[in-house]
């Protein structure tokens, strides 16, 4: 008995050490490709690092440690960059992510619910079709939509012209979607004017965003027992009452994590914004990530860009912590204790 107990203990110990050994290679690789650059970045965010320092890196003789200057410059808009205001970009960035989620989730749920109607023809084809946007490369999507919003030849202006003609206005429409800096609804978002480019991007990203929500909602819908609807219909619920009282609350546990995911995705939707508007006009559609990219790519201020990246990291961390709380707070009704 005593012997077996001690050998058991030894085995347990060996077993508990083994996982660390297995994880070691991964840790080493992550150390080299993740943690080292991160720390390096934090260090150079306190310097005046520019392209001329690239060769010698931190050992460059003229590299100066300038404390929090980069950070202060960013927050006080003291950078010699046109139309830059950190808090406006931050506000816009949050609004961009939130407004997308608030559009995509309800649309996805609604379409999934409609497609879940019993006896609907060609259901499988619709469902396959709406996955399509998800697999088209963002560059292609952005190019297509840029063309759609072309001032002279784009489909959007032509469509608006047709609609206008319908209401007795035969003039052609030349809306400059990506150039007009005057917000169509002034003061809609305090602190960050929403230009036409924002609306154009919302339309294009809507096309890209709802299918994912619909996929999630379709899966969740199928796990709602049919007899709940039957019980509700006997209890006196109309179709829309069933939707609000049963479908919506029972979809919530699935949709909130999806919404959180959609939020983080939109929050950092670099390629789409970059290809479509490049952050313009007048940086009105700039996201934190596209601006950081500009700092490095066009201005080559590595020090400022590093500071900016650190700020983005902190913002992202806060967003992550909040969304994580939200996700954990919405466990499935069946599981939660």
């Amino acid at each position: 008995m005593a012997i077996s107990k001690s050998t058991q203990k030894a085995r347990k110990k060996r077993q508990s050490n083994l996982p660390y050994l297995y994880l070691l290679p991964a840790f080493l690789i992550m150390g080299v490709i993740t943690f080292y650059p991160l720390i390096y970045q934090v260090i150079i965010s306190f310097t005046n690092f520019e392209s001329k320092h690239l060769l010698l890196g931190l050992r460059s003789p003229e590299l100066e440690f300038i404390g929090f200057k980069n950070y202060i410059d960013i927050f006080t808009a003291a950078l010699p960059v046109e139309n830059f205001n950190f808090f406006r970009v931050l506000t816009f960035n949050f609004w961009w992510a939130i407004s997308n989620v608030f559009l995509h989730v309800p649309a996805g749920v609604l379409i999934a619910t409609l497609l879940n109607t019993e006896g609907l023809w060609l259901k499988k084809i619709y469902r396959a079709a709406y996955i399509l946007p998800v697999v088209v490369p963002p560059l292609v999507v952005a190019t297509v939509w840029t063309n759609i919003f072309d001032e002279r030849y784009g489909a959007m202006n032509q469509l608006l012209a047709i609609i206008g003609g319908f209401f007795g206005n035969p003039d052609p429409v030349y809306i400059r979607w990506f150039e007009d800096v005057k917000p169509p609804i002034p003061g809609f978002l305090p602190g960050a004017p929403l230009t036409l480019a924002y609306y154009a991007m919302m339309i294009a990203n809507f096309w890209l965003g709802w299918p994912f929500m619909s996929v999630v909602a379709t899966g969740a819908l199928q796990s709602i027992p049919k007899d709940l609807y039957e019980a509700a219909s006997i209890d006196g619920a109309t179709g829309s009452q069933q939707f609000w009282n049963i479908t919506v609350p029972l979809l919530r546990p699935a949709m909130i994590p999806a919404a959180v995911y959609g939020f983080t995705l939109s929050f950092n939707l670099f390629n789409f914004v970059f290809f479509m508007t490049g952050g313009g006009p007048a940086r009105s559609t700039e996201l934190l990530v596209t601006f950081a990219y500009n700092l490095v790519r066009n201005l080559r201020w590595y020090g400022v860009a590093a500071a900016f990246a650190v700020i983005i990291f902190i913002v992202a961390l806060i967003v992550f912590l909040i969304t994580n709380r939200i996700t954990r707070a919405t466990q499935n009704y069946q599981e939660a204790g």
Binding site: P225, D227, L228, E230, A231, A232, S233, I234, D235, G236, A237, T238, N245, I246, P249, L250, Y333, Q334
Partner: peptide, 20 residues
Amino acid sequence: VAPKDRDIAMVFQSYALYPH
């Protein structure tokens, strides 16, 4: 006549209680 207007109540085999 729609189920809700038949003035009946039904107890399902699965109970069909609203889980939320």
